[in-house]
């Protein structure tokens, strides 16, 4: 209990809201790193994932690469790249972008694949071009899953930037790594609580975004659409949600 009081005292101490190590500065850095990671990973993974989902080509690669990446220990990857590339933001950024690609990629292609084949077939039969099918049918109908992939990637980035603070970087992990050698437990706890709070806020924001981007007709028709689905495709969908875009590291 004393630890808890000490932690809250640390969090409320006005001294921790000033200077380069101020809480708001560290939160800002963490958010900035995370957004940068998401942006760079999206530039690579979204077009690739959409291409795989739309054409069905390159899927084996799109599945296997994330599966292999998932087995990589982030801590090792971050440190290895730092030793190879040098200290600074670049090494961890490369590592984090690599790690953020699988969930975004998987969200995009499994999102597109979740769209009813009959709907896509009908859109083609009506005379939509490939691009029109993609933009007017496939993307709107899978936006929620695509956002889900971004959500996983964002949470992973928040978590991994915390670990990456083992390098001389900013962000909230700084508190934990600065406090570790001197056993400043309240500071470690305060840093941890801030990261957890940031992660939960991120998760909630993306959950909200997923609701917002779901087209109204899909929400309205969910019950009847679900009814039409066969059992095995339900199982398949369940599998997809878990297997494809679960982040490996927090």
């Amino acid at each position: 209990m004393n630890q808890l009081f000490a932690t809250f005292a640390w969090l409320l101490d006005p001294a921790h809201y000033a200077g380069p190590d101020a809480i708001q500065v560290r939160v800002g850095e963490q958010v900035e790193y995370t957004l940068l990671t998401l942006l760079l990973a999206s530039i690579i993974a979204l077009p690739a994932g959409l291409a795989i989902g739309h054409t069905g080509r390159g899927r084996t690669l799109g599945v296997q690469i994330p599966a292999v990446l998932r087995a990589l220990p982030t801590l090792g990857l971050v440190i290895l790249l730092a030793l190879m590339v040098g200290l600074g933001l670049l090494a961890p950024l490369i590592a984090l972008v690599i790690l953020a690609i699988p969930p975004i990629l998987a969200g995009a292609y499994s999102g597109l694949e979740s769209v009813d084949r009959e709907t896509v077939d009908a859109a083609r039969a009506l005379g939509m071009t490939g691009w029109q099918v993609l933009w007017k049918v496939e993307i709107p109908l899978s936006l929620s899953l695509i956002t889900g992939g971004l959500r996983s990637a964002a949470l992973q980035a928040v978590a991994t930037w915390t670990i990456a603070a083992i390098l001389p970087l900013g962000g909230l992990g700084r508190y934990i790594f600065d406090a570790l050698p001197v056993q400043d437990y309240p500071k470690m706890l305060a840093g941890s609580m801030l990261v957890i709070a940031l992660a939960l806020v991120t998760d909630a924001l993306f959950a909200l975004l997923q609701k917002v981007v779901t087209p109204p007709g899909v929400r309205a028709g969910r019950a009847s659409l679900v009814r039409a689905k066969t059992t095995h495709s339900h199982a398949r969908a369940a599998l997809f949600r878990h297997a494809s875009f679960i982040r490996n590291e927090r």
Binding site: L155, A159, T162, G191, M193
Partner: peptide, 24 residues
């Protein structure tokens, strides 16, 4: 489950002694 899964690992490791009463 969703909330627990969203918690980053390092902070959770750090928090565990407080919750379990164990040593760090």
């Amino acid at each position: 489950g969703g909330v627990l899964y969203a918690i980053p690992s390092l902070p959770l490791f750090v928090m565990m002694p407080l919750i379990l009463g164990t040593k760090i």
